[in-house]
């Protein structure tokens, strides 16, 4: 990516501005996941409500970022790395908004789970996968800030582990439901939470793909891991 200064300082400021807004949105999405898992662990109704109400802030940032990106495209006609930056910012903001929605889905389960007998899982899988996807999101956003495609590749690889963990957790849930019918409702809620976390991992992965696009100018959304490794090694 070009690292010389723009001749037009105001254009550089606009690009920096939209980038910063995206990072602000990323920070908010990270917080939403953290609070949603916390609310679940602590049976905390208030925190879960807060997660639900703060989703408006995430949505608002998405709209702001898209407006700003459209404005830059219309008025500045960005090219090359600037164009890729604007495109990837709008794509990433969509993923962050969806991550916000997943956090809300998790928070909504708190209310139901509070009224049901707690299963034997003690939310172990949820905590583990929750931590994994939170780290993935942080790593993807860091990779965006530092324009580090190798770190982005790391996120893609980590997603495979999340998918495996998710599959293993589902097997476990099936066994628990077969053993004790009284916890079926709570287990179903936990499955909803796990699915939301797995989706957050997918969105973090999408963000990582945008980082590689931004740096290399190649759309890697449908690349296999081997193809990605070859690309980044070249």
């Amino acid at each position: 990516m070009a690292n010389h200064e723009h001749i037009s300082g105001s254009f550089a400021d606009e690009l920096e501005g939209v980038k910063n807004k995206l990072l602000e949105m990323g920070g908010l999405a990270e917080q939403q996941i953290k609070m949603a898992i916390e609310a679940l662990n602590n049976d905390d109704k208030d925190v879960s409500k807060e997660v639900i109400s703060r989703d408006d802030l995430v949505n608002e940032l998405e709209v702001n970022i898209d407006e700003e990106a459209s404005r830059i495209m219309a008025l500045r006609q960005p090219a090359a790395s600037d164009l890729r930056l604007v495109i990837s910012v709008t794509k990433i903001s969509t993923d962050l908004e969806r991550i916000g929605d997943e956090a809300v889905k998790i928070a909504r389960q708190v209310k139901i789970l509070r009224q049901e007998p707690r299963s034997r899982t003690n939310y172990a899988e949820i905590k583990m996968i929750g931590e994994r996807v939170s780290n993935m999101l942080r790593a993807a956003l860091d990779a965006f800030t530092r324009l580090d495609p190798q770190a982005a590749l790391g996120v893609k690889i980590e997603d495979k582990h999340v998918d495996d963990d998710f599959a293993a957790a589902l097997d476990n849930m099936r066994v628990l439901m077969a053993e004790d019918a009284s916890v079926i409702k709570s287990i179903l809620c936990e499955i909803w939470v796990l699915k939301a976390l797995e989706r957050i991992g997918d969105h973090a992965c999408n963000i990582a793909e945008q980082v590689i696009f931004l740096d290399k100018g190649i759309d890697v959304r449908h690349f296999s891991s081997a193809e990605l490794r070859d690309l980044l090694a070249s």
């Binding site: 070009a2 010389h4 200064e5 723009h6 001749i7 037009s8 254009f11 960005p78 090219a79 090359a80 790395s81 600037d82 164009l83 890729r84 290399k216 100018g217 190649i218």
Partner: peptide
């Protein structure tokens, strides 16, 4: 050339940066 040029000089020129 306009989305992903190979040369840094081209990139700088078309994105309006100092070459």
């Amino acid at each position: 050339i306009f989305t992903n040029p190979n040369e840094k000089q081209t990139e700088d020129y078309i994105t309006g940066r100092y070459g």
